[in-house]
Computed example of a mutant assay.
Amino acid sequence: MNIRLALRASSIGVVVGLSLSTAVASAAPSDFTWPLQPKPRIVTPFDRPDQNWLPGHRGVDLAADEGRPVLAVADGTVVFAGSVAGKPVVSVDHPGGLRSTYEPVTASVTAGTRVRRGTVLGSLASGHDGCSSTCLHWGIRRGREYLDPTALVRTRPIRLKPVDGPSR
């Protein structure tokens, strides 16, 4: 997805441009929300490796207390709720070919369950490697390509509005 931001201040002739390119799905950001509420602190950011076989961080780690409810980030269908390599995991398929994953989560849903954005999927368990305290590893992928999940929940762009009064 390409995001372009242009600010124009015609009275002083300034134009500022910004272009970001991030691999995300063709989904409206308003369709997605954070898997923890309120918005959590990111402990470890997304770090896509240059090649699929290289090390990287294919998701984000979010700080939270053990037992905290973990929410579906968008409407979809639970496709997995169980253990992977001894860790409790929940995966949800969303329209547009996206799959969200949450680990470690003790599931309160089962495979085949249809969920809406904000539905409780389970509770956060302890034991995610790489976090000194309890945290949720949240990932998004399309097919085999891992994407930055925070790109789906970024805040709306800042919009400048005219201010009454003398121009500067």
Rank of each mutant, 00 (worst) to 15 (best):
Trp138Val: 04
Gly82Tyr: 09
Cys131Pro: 04
Leu7Lys: 01
Ser21Met: 05
Val16Met: 05
Ala125Gln: 10
Leu54Gln: 11
Trp138Tyr: 08
Gly118Lys: 11
Lys39Phe: 01
Gly82Pro: 12
Arg144Glu: 15
Ala125Gly: 13
Asp61Ala: 14
Val16Ala: 11
Asp93Met: 12
Arg48Asn: 06
Leu147Ala: 11
Ser91Pro: 04
Pro157Phe: 05
Phe32Thr: 11
Arg116Ser: 13
Ala23Val: 05
Thr155Trp: 03
Asp50Val: 02
Ala9Val: 11
Val115Thr: 09
Arg99Lys: 15
Ser126Ala: 15
Arg41Ile: 08
Gly118Gln: 11
Pro35Val: 07
Val43Arg: 12
Leu7Gly: 06
Pro40Phe: 04
Thr77His: 13
Glu145Gln: 14
Arg156Met: 04
Asp93Leu: 10
Arg4Asn: 03
Val14Gly: 06
Arg154Asn: 08
Trp34Asp: 13
Arg144Phe: 11
Arg144Gly: 14
Gly143Asn: 02
Pro55Gln: 00
Pro95Trp: 05
Ser91Asn: 12
Thr101Ser: 15
Arg68Asn: 08
Thr134Ile: 05
Pro69Phe: 02
Ile12Met: 05
Asp93Phe: 05
Pro29Ala: 06
Gly165Lys: 06
Leu124His: 12
Leu124Ala: 11
Val60Asp: 13
Ser123Asp: 03
Pro45Ser: 12
Val109Glu: 14
Ser132Cys: 02
Leu152Thr: 04
Ala125Pro: 10
Leu71His: 04
Trp138Asp: 10
Thr134Asn: 11
Ala81Thr: 02
Arg48Ala: 15
Gln51Ile: 00
Arg168Trp: 08
Thr106Pro: 03
Asp75Cys: 10
Glu66Met: 01
Ala81Lys: 02
Ser108Tyr: 08
Ser83Trp: 04
Asp148Met: 03
Pro149Gln: 02
Arg142Asp: 08
Leu5Gln: 13
Pro40Gln: 01
Arg8Ser: 14
Leu54Pro: 03
Ala81Gly: 08
Val16His: 07
Ser167Tyr: 06
Val105Thr: 14
Ala72Glu: 10
Arg41Phe: 03
Leu147Pro: 13
Thr106Ser: 13
Asp129Phe: 07
Thr150Ser: 06
Val89Met: 10
Arg8Asn: 14
Pro49Ser: 00
Val78Thr: 09
Leu71Val: 05
Val15Asn: 06
Thr155Phe: 00
Cys131Lys: 05
Ala151Val: 06
Arg159Ser: 02
Arg114Trp: 03
Arg114Tyr: 08
Val115Tyr: 00
Gln37Pro: 01
Asn2Phe: 01
Asp50Ala: 15
Leu98Phe: 00
Ser21Gly: 14
Gly56Gln: 00
Leu62Gln: 05
Val73Ile: 12
Thr119Cys: 01
Gly97Cys: 12
Arg48Thr: 04
Asp31His: 00
Val79Ser: 14
Ser132Val: 01
Asp129His: 12
Val70Arg: 06
Ile140Val: 10
Val15His: 06
Ile158Gln: 05
Leu136Lys: 01
Lys161Arg: 15
Ser167Pro: 07
Asp93Thr: 15
Thr44Cys: 00
Pro38Ala: 06
Arg168Lys: 08
Ala63His: 03
Ala64Ser: 13
Trp53Glu: 13
Thr44Phe: 00
Pro162His: 09
Ile140Arg: 02
Ala63Pro: 05
Pro88Ala: 07
Pro49Leu: 00
Thr110Val: 15
Val84Trp: 08
Gly97Arg: 14
Asn52Met: 03
Pro29Lys: 05
Ala107Arg: 10
Tyr102Lys: 11
Pro45Asp: 12
